[in-house]
């Protein structure tokens, strides 16, 4: 068990000393390998706060988080006995807005920044930068450019490459596809899916896109007002009739298959979760 939450609550302190409960009594566990998780929920439901607990950027005000054998609770930061920094190498978190992290003169230096902080040599970091820029779908010519002259989507890719270059055990991405064009979005999602399948790493994606959830995720977590209301199989989630109470939407493919089933009075043996699978299933239906 790589990450385990035990009755975790988190309260933001505000100006008037009335706390705001961002997480309420959360229990979950995440494996080191083999998981592809999507985290969904409306804005302000505590998704990002939850993600920031997974690499100890935030510490719970109640309860405990165990991350790779290190226990984090409300006293961890005060006691200063445990170094939290190594956790961030193991659990890489990509923030939603790349503007918050890009600062170096060149893209290459910026990608190298993370690995070098964790003691990777300059040569090795440069090698990783070269590799990762390709992985996120840009070419090597970008390495010498300034990160501030890139488009929004390119910045996003560079910031993702910066975390990938740290070679974390678990990768968490906060809305990695927001602000990207559809083609770029699908390409990037494939990148994450490849990281998951080829390197057998756990990937956690925060998203608003139900299609991503349905097509890629093996497991989905739904947050609602700081509470983890659902944690499990996406197919089971969307087959529930009242998911709109969590402000969720039915994925396009699922809507289409339901319509097809109703129209042709046919039952798919296994509901297709991607376009490819749907076409395959249609072949079966036409036969």
């Amino acid at each position: 068990m790589a990450i385990k939450f035990e009755r975790v609550s988190f309260q933001y302190t505000s100006m008037d000393n009335k706390g705001y409960l961002a997480l309420a009594d959360i229990n979950l566990s995440i494996n080191k390998t083999g998981e592809f998780i999507t985290l969904i929920g409306e804005t302000g439901s505590g998704k990002s706060t939850l993600a920031q607990h997974m690499n100890a950027l935030l510490q719970p005000t109640e309860g405990r988080v165990h991350i790779f054998g290190i226990t984090v609770d409300d006293k961890t930061k005060k006691q200063r006995k445990i170094k939290l920094n190594p956790i961030r190498k193991q659990v890489g978190l990509v923030f939603q807005f790349p503007e918050y992290q890009l600062f170096e003169e060149t893209v290459e230096k910026d990608i190298m920044f993370g690995p070098k902080n964790f003691g990777v040599s300059t040569e090795e970091a440069a090698k990783r930068a070269e590799k990762m820029i390709e992985v996120v779908g840009l070419d090597a010519s970008y390495l010498k450019r300034s990160p501030f002259n890139l488009s929004g989507g390119e910045k996003k890719r560079v910031s993702i490459a910066g975390i990938l270059a740290m070679e974390p055990e678990i990768l968490i991405l906060d809305e990695p596809t927001s602000g990207l064009d559809p083609i770029g979005r699908n390409a990037l999602l494939d990148v994450f899916y490849n990281i998951h399948t080829e390197l057998d790493k756990t990937v956690i994606i925060i998203t608003h896109d139900m299609n991503t959830v349905y097509e890629y995720a093996k497991r989905v977590m739904v947050m609602r007002e700081g509470v983890l209301v659902y944690d499990g199989d996406p197919v089971a989630l969307f087959s529930k009739s009242n998911i709109d109470r969590w402000n969720l939407d039915v994925p396009d493919i699922l809507g289409l298959t339901r319509d097809l089933e109703a129209k042709f009075d046919y039952k798919f043996t296994e509901p297709p979760r991607s376009r490819k699978a749907l076409f395959k299933a249609l072949e079966g239906m036409l036969k």
Binding site: N55, L57, N85, R88, V94, F95, Y100, Q101, F113, G114
Partner: peptide, 19 residues
């Protein structure tokens, strides 16, 4: 607020602002 967010983003890249 922005400074706080930047510090979190950099902390997740291994910048240890306390030590």
């Amino acid at each position: 607020d922005e400074a706080n967010k930047i510090m979190l983003a950099q902390a997740s890249r291994g910048v240890d602002f306390e030590e």
